[in-house]
Design a protein around this nucleic acid. Sequence first.
DNA 1: GTCTATAGAGGGATAGAC
DNA 2: GTCTATCCCTCTATAGAC
Lengths: 197, 197
Amino acid sequence: MEEKSISTEEKIKAAARTIFTRKGYAATKTRDIAEEAGMNLALLNYYFRSKEKLFSIVMAENLKKLFGILAPTLNDKSKSLDEKIAYIATSYIDMLFLNPDLPLFVLSELRQNPVWLRETLNVDAYVIGSHFMQQLQEKKKDINPIHFLMSFLGMLIFPFAARPILQGTAALTDEQYNQLMEERKKLIPIWLKCMLE
Amino acid sequence: MEEKSISTEEKIKAAARTIFTRKGYAATKTRDIAEEAGMNLALLNYYFRSKEKLFSIVMAENLKKLFGILAPTLNDKSKSLDEKIAYIATSYIDMLFLNPDLPLFVLSELRQNPVWLRETLNVDAYVIGSHFMQQLQEKKKDINPIHFLMSFLGMLIFPFAARPILQGTAALTDEQYNQLMEERKKLIPIWLKCMLE
DNA sequence: GTCTATAGAGGGATAGAC
DNA sequence: GTCTATCCCTCTATAGAC
């Protein structure tokens, strides 16, 4: 409620987001978060009741970031199928550039605790039942549109989830990796178009 | 060295594989492994020196399972590009059916500790420098073949990594999910062929 | 080889001074 | 609001009986 408190609370939340998202719930120590935030451990429990409470806030934010981008575009009836695909490919890769740890974090933690999905946002309505999925179904009547959604997201997300492996084994510099991801903004829509012919 | 010991040792290793692969290193308690193995906690440390030692064995096995399938086929010079793709799609999906937690486990743990890759198997030589990659390069001279590898693996792996989300949001029964994965054995090669035209 | 009991460290949470 | 000191539980690892 005080002036200072807002800044401190935000600092803790930012630190928690960083550490939790990078290491996951179990591997994260509250002491690490405090250190990252540049302050004492006791403040975590002063502002947020517990490690778990802090985590749930971070998780909700991350889920929103990961699905929030998707839902509005998927249901934008003014956009054609191709336009949706091109727009999502670009904006999703841009978002993943800024939040590279997000996909693996969400996939891992959600596997342990699938409850989150229902509680925070109802993805089923806005993703599975979206205008985008209807357009896919129309275009390819004999194939379940979920197939295309899985492939689309897989092509977008996998290179970020597997970045350490890719860079390690293919000996890619950061510049080379970044350039590849830039190229994918154009390539993935081309590929999807071809898959839908 | 005794007769009984082999069985017990294997039981522990199997339990460790299950729990570690499902929950990751940090979230796994040695007590859980002991319970899963149906025996006492002290036996873990009798057969394997520590939690970490046991983990490294499981990790090595999992890495081998995940990449071991790939390497021989990727370098089989008697197989055409299309044959390689078709064979890998089928065998990889079959393997993932049996080990659904494998990809997320390896991706997550490797992110924390990229050392593993170099130590256990040199993926760079057998995957990045494979005959498969050469074939891709020849077929599409103006596109980095890593793009196709990323998309191929993404399309194969993502549906398994995201299974809880998919099943939860799309309200898929296990049968429906399994059928989708079966369909992908044929669809993914068709899609890749089209991407390579 | 297998068990029970316990040592010892680490980490989440709180008390209480300022 | 912020800090130090500390409680207390959980978890890994080991000692020692059988």
